[in-house]
Design a protein around this nucleic acid. Structure first.
Lengths: 132, 132
DNA sequence: CTGTATCCGTCGCGATACTG
DNA sequence: CAGTATCGCGACGGATACAG
């Protein structure tokens, strides 16, 4: 049965796991989900702590995460408004995975930068010369 | 010193680790790098095995990975051409991390789909009704 | 404070054609 | 086989203004 995705593979373009992968690995999910692992947070706090995110992208990403059952939105129905976002159990399992990716980037970014410099220096005629 | 990134944080938009994170978590890197963990592969094989990738994106991603020291390109200088791509040691360390993300997606994609259906059903007036 | 709506430029990326 | 070059559209996402 071609619709049995019990043996899902991200290498198949049509497999639903591919869509899941893209949601989960989107630029802001990669930061928001691990951040929420430390505890619930409000919109304004996320806006401040997730460097570079715009209100639009923050809301858009949170909505998508909520829609997929990774984040829960708690509205305290007060005025002024007070809304909190927190990870669901599924979200927590994901955050552990994504946090590893974040830490890999933080640990090895210097290696990448070094490699870039060597690569760009090796052929000054082609590719992306860092400088103008 | 504000240029000391020894305590790198992806949460800072200006930290180099952010750029590293985005390279490493790009749509095709997430598939190519773990795929290469199984062994070196040729251009045509990657094109066949990585579902949905175009020649353009494949080359572009491989170049960027090579530039950052994650992938090595071996040209056998034969005719017809024979080129292999393989992971560097740094690339291998990354592949282990990314493979976990891939497997998370494969394992939990059904949960996400279920959550979507519940979410979309819960408010038929707003949001993204799946069907047109 | 927590969003939503609209405008609009950038560029990611597929399609296609050509090369060694 | 393994790419490169070019065109063109569609979306991604920032800026701004408005709302409960």
């Amino acid at each position: 049965m071609e619709n049995d995705h019990s043996n899902a593979s991200v290498y198949s373009a049509s497999c639903p796991s591919r869509a899941a992968l893209e949601l989960v690995s989107s630029k802001w999910s990669l930061l928001i989900v691990p951040f929420l692992a430390a505890g619930p947070a409000r919109n304004s706090e996320l806006l401040r702590r997730i460097g570079g995110v715009s209100q639009k992208m923050l809301t858009q990403t949170l909505r998508e995460l909520q829609r997929n059952g990774l984040v829960e939105r708690i509205d305290y129905q007060t005025v002024p408004p007070h809304v909190e976002y927190r990870l669901s159990p599924l979200g927590h399992s994901l955050s552990q995975t994504l946090a590893v990716v974040d830490r890999w980037a933080e640990t090895h970014h210097a290696d990448l930068t070094q490699a870039q410099q060597r690569f760009d220096a090796a052929d000054g005629h082609a590719g992306h010369p860092g400088g103008k």
